[in-house]
């Protein structure tokens, strides 16, 4: 289970929720530590939330699809973030979708939204190297 988040997630104030299917959804409250310009989230904090969501989705996929135990490490290779809307003074959620989980590489897409999941404030495509010990 993806129940423990790294210290960086705590710095962002991120908590894990689950959707109806048990997939992780990450929640980041608005606060001083994630502000960029006054009244708006920092793009970097949104990127960080997307990263945490992508990694949570990836570990979830590894645990549910693969027979391997937890001896799998993942390393980020590329991250591309598109920013659609400013992040306002309200909670932000993000979830990742693993588009492909291979032996050595995983492709993950993550989106972040506030009021309406269909109106994302940012989205990211991330490629990870999978190291199976």
């Amino acid at each position: 289970m993806v129940s423990t988040l790294p210290p960086y997630a705590a710095t962002l104030g991120v908590e894990i929720e689950r959707d109806a299917e048990g997939r992780p959804v990450l929640l980041m409250p608005f606060g001083d530590d994630v502000i960029g310009r006054p009244g708006f989230l920092h793009g970097g904090a949104i990127s960080g939330l997307l990263e945490v969501a992508a990694i949570a989705a990836l570990y979830h996929a590894i645990e549910t699809e693969g027979p391997e135990d937890a001896s799998v490490r993942i390393k980020p290779v590329t991250v591309t973030v598109d920013f659609m809307r400013g992040g306002r003074d309200k909670p932000t959620r993000a979830a990742g979708v693993v588009t492909r989980l291979g032996t050595r590489v995983a492709n993950v897409e993550a989106t972040a939204w506030q009021d309406d999941r269909d109106k994302p404030i940012a989205a990211a495509r991330m490629n990870y190297l999978i190291v199976r010990d």
Binding site: P6, P7, Y8, T11, L12, G44, S47, E51, V81
Partner: peptide, 20 residues
């Protein structure tokens, strides 16, 4: 330590680098 993304290695997350 608050930037760590991988507690096993102590490597910082990529998010802080994106922010910077």
């Amino acid at each position: 330590e608050k930037l760590i993304g991988d507690p096993a290695s102590g490597v910082i997350a990529s998010g802080p680098i994106i922010t910077m």
